[in-house]
Write a protein that binds this DNA or RNA. Structure first.
Length: 201
DNA sequence: CTTCCGATTGAA
DNA sequence: TCAATCGGAAGG
């Protein structure tokens, strides 16, 4: 068995979420099911949450829910929001520094079978929607992002990276969405002019 | 134990 | 503008 060099390893994620969040734009989230079905989505929108950040679930103290954010990078942090949607995070930074990157939107290469009839560009345009499209729930929290698991991450493709360098693709940095705390911190990033991004601004 | 609320979404 | 819906965090 060979190691796929496109796989994003924990070391790459062991940095501040403020660095990892923009770096994850253009990378790919892979969802693999037990029956072999594999779904892929280009990450087009992210938000960073970190230590000392009043909007971060780990801001007050360590709890059963947020414990995973205090650990090593490269793990999933999934939580339920408003009793009906799930949100998927990538745990970042070094051990003991609670931080994570929320994956807010994906551009899918094809519709999941259970989403037939929906508009492909918008089916994963939002953190709750992408978890619905990829069937991410609480059973997938505190799991490693790793090939062979339910979820893993892959680096930008060379063509995508070239388009960034040629300024054919640009990123926008702005404030985060839906918060009551830390509303002014510009810790949200998205791919400019991408139809799969949840919201503009 | 009880109460309150949210890193959302889509319909009114 | 507002309700749906529930796990977890805070308060008594």
């Amino acid at each position: 068995m060979t190691i796929d060099s496109s796989f994003i390893q924990p070391e790459w994620l062991s940095r501040s979420s403020l660095e990892v969040a923009p770096d994850l734009l253009g990378c790919t989230l892979v969802r693999q099911f037990a029956d072999g079905l594999t779904l892929r989505g280009l990450i087009v929108e992210t938000e960073a949450y970190t230590v000392g950040d009043p909007a971060c679930h780990a801001y007050r103290r360590q709890t059963d829910r947020n414990r995973i954010m205090f650990g090593t990078a490269g793990m999933t942090y999934v939580y339920l929001i408003y009793g009906m949607y799930h949100c998927l995070n990538v745990v970042t930074d070094r051990d003991g520094v609670p931080s994570a990157v929320l994956i807010r939107a994906l551009q899918l290469d094809r519709l999941p079978p259970w989403c037939l009839g929906e508009k492909q560009t918008r089916v994963a345009a939002g953190p709750g929607k992408l978890c619905r499209a990829f069937k991410v729930d609480l059973t997938l929290t505190a799991q490693p992002f790793q090939p062979g698991q339910a979820l893993w991450l892959e680096h930008r493709s060379p063509p995508f990276q070239e388009q960034i360098e040629q300024h054919a693709i640009a990123f926008v940095q702005t404030t985060r969405i839906g918060l009551t705390q830390g509303v002014d911190l510009p810790w949200r990033w998205y791919v400019k002019n991408c139809a799969a991004v949840s919201k503009k601004g």
